[in-house]
Design a protein around this nucleic acid. Structure first.
Lengths: 191, 191
DNA sequence: CGGGTGATGACAGAGACTGTCATCGCTATG
DNA sequence: CATAGCGATGACAGTCTCTGTCATCACCCG
């Protein structure tokens, strides 16, 4: 418990996120009630739901990945092939994510332990894929190439991320992304 | 209402699925309570939860896709490239699915209207992808090629399926799958 | 016909989420 | 400095999902 702070203590949302992360780590997602999260943050259950649409969303509320990916994609020149534009965006974003490795690990451990959280993660990734496809279309890429390239990019990122989080030795995430992409190219080439 | 049937009317599970599909179509997913579904099927709410883990699962309980995909993959010769083995399995399964077009449309309309249902659909597809990757590994495909090929295959299937469901003119689903796969190959080749 | 077994009903209860209204702290404005 | 407005919070009641528990019912087996 942080202590009872009156109303208007700053950063209510951040306090809720921190409290949730701690409690989920300690007791697990199911064994933690929203009321408990709110109380640890010095707030009420009702206020929790004003900041987050549901109990799961507190783990997914701040995700700078989408912005980074889309920005990087829009920035690159329109001349390169879609898959290469995606490769660049993925590596830039991977580099960003790399700075928060411990937070990412902790969060992922919670998510991996609960199916409901995996569902939420998957739909966030789908939204990411959709945003990527939009950005590609803005670059003049037609359908279904845009959607396919976006889906392929997300798949590559997912697989690289899993390796990065699980390996105990610090491997470079952008490198893992590049490796996974090369593997995908090899596989789809029919080998 | 089907009428009040005593206990032991046959196919309780099927009646629940049918009642749910009808009610979700009529009123929407949120506006339908589990109690209403159960009553239309001549059962109680408690019994609903004995057949389905949660309210969403009633739409996903019977999915023969996974079995078909894995069976088809295991059946093919080990000599072909992973991506081609997947292509065959996808086309065989697409052909199966094609027979239930109207049911698929109705179901998909409900799913598309509710985020929570899309979450469940995505995790079912992830499970499918995982099963595909397992089957590939049984064929001797190494990681991460197996996972990447499986993810790519699911992406191809997803995009072909969307087109098949939305187009008013009856296009051949296996053909759409093949087209999407060819597109993916072109995209990952760097064009 | 009695016992066993599995499916169902009845009931209570926890917890997620929503609607509504009161209350609080800050700020602009006179 | 008073006060009115505004956004964030609290308080409270209520619905619905989902679970645990025990009784009851239909069927099958000997």
């Amino acid at each position: 418990m942080i202590g009872d702070m009156g109303r208007w203590e700053p950063n209510a949302r951040g306090r809720l996120e921190q409290a949730a992360l701690d409690l989920f780590s300690e007791r697990g997602f199911d064994a933690t009630t929203v009321k408990e999260i709110a109380e640890r943050a010095g707030l009420t259950e009702r206020t929790f739901f004003r900041h987050f649409a549901d109990k799961r969303e507190v783990l997914f509320g701040s995700s700078p990945l989408q912005e980074s990916l889309v920005t990087a994609l829009d920035a690159g020149p329109d001349t390169v092939a879609p898959i290469d534009a995606i490769a660049v965006a993925l590596r830039v974003t991977a580099d960003l994510l790399q700075e928060r490795r411990e937070l990412a690990r902790r969060r992922q451990a919670i998510i991996d332990a609960h199916t409901e959280l995996q569902e939420r993660e998957l739909i966030k990734l789908a939204s990411l894929s959709s945003a990527l496809a939009d950005a590609l279309r803005r670059r003049g890429v037609a359908e279904p190439a845009a959607s396919l390239a976006a889906e392929a990019g997300i798949a590559v990122f997912k697989i690289a991320f899993v390796r990065w989080v699980n390996e105990s030795n610090r491997q470079d995430l952008p490198e893992l992304v590049q490796d996974a992409l090369d593997e995908l190219k090899a596989v789809t080439a029919g080998k």
